[in-house]
Amino acid sequence: MIDIIVFLVLLTLGYGFGRWAEKRHFASIIEREELLRGLLTFSGRIPPQGLGPVDAVLVGGNVVISIDYFKRISATLRSLIGGRVMAYESLLERARREAILRMKQEAFDSGASHVINVKLETASISKGRGQQVGSVEVYAYGTALIAQTA
């Protein structure tokens, strides 16, 4: 009985806080993406033509986001029947966009106008006990192009 109560409390807490955090995060992501819209990012390796002389600097942004209890249970249930693991999809979407944003912020701070050759790396961490994925890391990196002023 006590197990069930603990489980339900964890589930409710996980859902409440997880959903609140996710809502806030998405709002913040959308807002900052709008701010940095002027800074163009491409996965292509070749710089756009007509830029003039530029300096190239490595920029990167990295983020780790933990899943909440509700997402874990939801994903466990999903793993029994298959299908879209929506609980994790939103998590990874947040991580990707946040990592790119942090990379762009770094590029913006160094006065870049473009970031080319953007790549993403992901890793799941704290995977040890019971093969449960605890949190996910996304690292975005690229080459910032800074126009030479002289």
Binding site: R19, F70, S74, L77, L80, I81, R84, E89, S90
Partner: peptide, 18 residues
């Protein structure tokens, strides 16, 4: 990438099915 479906709806559908 993110479904607009409410996570609780998905959760309870799965829970009742299973």
């Amino acid at each position: 990438n993110v479904s607009s479906e409410h996570p609780l709806k998905d959760f309870f559908l799965m829970l009742s099915g299973i």
